[in-house]
Structures are given as C-alpha cells and as structure tokens.
C-alpha cells in the first residue's frame, strides 16, 4: 500500500511539472498548428539562464525564473516572427517543413549552449533540494511540492488569460479559424508571435521548476519534447485543462509503469498512450472533460 501511495505521489508531483512544460506546447500546437520539436531545447536554454544566474548572483531558480521567462519570451517571439512564420506560408512540397525547421533550430541552440557551457553536467543543489514531508511510510519532496504549486499557479493564470482577456480571445480566435480571425481585425502575425513567445516562456517556467530537482546538460531537451508532445496529444491541443489533466495522467502512468512493469520500459507506456489517444480519441482528454 505504501508502495502504491508513493508511486501515485511521485507521478502526481512530476505530472504537475510536466504539465507546465506541455502547456507551452499545447498553446503553440493548438493556436498555430506548429509542432515545435525544439521545445525541449529551448527549455534547456532557459535552464541555463537560471543556472548562470544561480552561479553568478546566487539567485534560486524560483526567482531566476522571472528573468528566464522574459528572455525565452523574446527568443520565442523573434523565432516565430522572423524564422518559423516565414516557412509556414511558403508553399512547399512537404507541409511539414516547419517541423524540420524547429528541429534544426533546436540543434543550433544546443550547439550554442555547448560552446558557452561545454557538455558538462550541471545542477543547482541546495540543501533544501532534498527536504521532505513524511506521511507514514511515504515521502513528499518539498521542492517538488512547491514546483507543483507554482505549476498550478501558471496553469490557472494562463487559463484566465485565455478565457478572460481580449488578448486571450484573439489567441483562441486565431486557433479556431485563422481566416475569420483576420477578417475580424486580428493581427495574425503579432498574435502568433506573441503566442509562441508565451509558449516558450511557459517552457522556461517548467525548466526553472525542474532545475532544483533535476540536473542539466545541453542535450537534456529531447525527452522533454517527447513528453510534452505526448501530453499535448493526450490532453488535446490548445486546451489548458487538457494539458493539466494530461500531464497528471502521464506522470502517474510513467510512475506506475516503472514500479509495476519495469523501469526500462516506462517510456513505452507513454508512447502507447500517445498512439491510442491519436487513434481512438483524436481530441484528447479535453473532449471528455467538456462533456
């Protein structure tokens, strides 16, 4: 019983952090139909920003986050405006050109970071990193709990932004029907650039939340890109509630897979969920939740 409880706690807390990373992707995929394979790589850039602030000024990642997020917002905005957008509306033989472009952009960022920080492993370790609360035989990691709390705050904030503000409405309008939104006077390029920036800022937040409990090296991004994609598909593109529930379900599935199947196979659990959702529930969890 303690084992089951512990597994669920681990999965749940991790799922919260996954959700923040995925929510950036769901925004980008939902609004712009851009599959951003460089998502994890850009999150890695944010983690390095936090790491640099930690080593130079001693700022804890939870504070450095508020520097990393604007940085990544800027990078995301510029990327969309001057690079990805360009390819999006060029008539190409392959419609998936933008997927490959984000892949190549990701490679460039990895190499830039590698030139600056080398391939060494880094981490931000403070004694606080392994503080725990104990309920009977089960433990709850305090930094993970705080990360989870901050993650929930971001999800709630984004949800409010999307549903209650004009900017949010124009984002959702662009997501629903690009042409109609244009006729209604929405500046699609501006909206998409801002959305991309916002997505990247959320990825940066996810990275910053991850930093105290994980570690850092330039190639860290790929598994996170894949996890974010799985969660996005699971939750349904464009839905904050979907990404949140997707993240939690995915985190727990991974955790249960590692305990009751095998730690080596736990990633397969995610892929199987991914394929099943794509095939049999194309709208993701959001279709279920809406009902």
């Amino acid at each position: 019983m303690a084992l089951f409880g512990q597994t669920i706690i681990c999965g749940f807390l991790m799922g919260g952090v996954y959700a923040v990373i995925a929510i950036g992707m769901t925004l980008i995929l939902g609004v712009m139909k851009i599959i951003n394979i460089g998502h994890g790589h850009l999150m890695m850039v944010a983690m390095y920003v936090c790491f640099a602030l930690f080593t130079s000024l001693g700022l804890h990642p939870y504070i450095a986050m508020f520097v990393a997020m604007p940085c990544l917002f800027g990078i995301g905005y510029l990327l969309q405006r001057y690079s990805i957008h360009r390819v999006r509306f060029v008539d190409t033989i392959l419609p998936q050109t933008q997927v490959l472009l984000t892949l190549a952009i990701g490679l460039v960022f990895v190499e830039i970071i590698r030139v600056i920080f080398k391939s060494d492993f880094r981490s931000v370790y403070t004694p606080f990193s392994s503080k725990c609360l104990y309920i009977g035989d089960m433990s709850i990691s305090l930094p993970q709990l705080i990360s989870f709390g901050i993650a929930m705050a971001f999800v709630a904030g984004l949800h409010i932004l999307l549903t209650r503000t004009d900017f949010g409405r124009s984002i959702r309008a662009t997501a629903q029907d690009l042409d109609a939104a244009k006729y209604m006077g929405v500046d699609a390029l501006r909206v998409s650039s801002l959305t991309f920036g916002l997505g990247m800022a959320l990825a940066a937040a996810g990275g910053a939340l991850l930093l105290p409990i994980f570690y850092l090296f330039p190639d860290i991004g790929v598994p996170f890109t894949i996890k974010a994609l799985i969660i996005t598909i699971l939750g349904g593109a464009g839905s904050t509630v979907g990404a949140l529930s997707g993240g939690l379900v995915f985190g727990m599935a991974e955790s249960l897979g590692a305990v009751y199947w095998a730690p080596g196979y736990k990633d397969v659990v995610g892929f199987v969920i991914f394929l099943l959702v794509l095939l049999f529930m194309p709208g993701g969890l959001k279709t279920v939740i809406k009902r």
Partner: peptide, 23 residues
C-alpha cells in the same frame, strides 16, 4: 493519421522499437 500527427506517431513508434530492443 495525417500531417504532423503522422510525423509524431512515427517518432513514437521508432522510440518504442528502440526501447524494446534495449530491454
């Protein structure tokens, strides 16, 4: 599946096969 989703599903399939061959 179509478009981008096909791209992603193939990625998932490939990774699954890699993990099976590893384990």
């Amino acid at each position: 599946l179509r478009g981008g989703y096909f791209v992603l599903s193939m990625l998932a399939v490939c990774e699954t096969i890699r993990i099976i061959f590893l384990n």
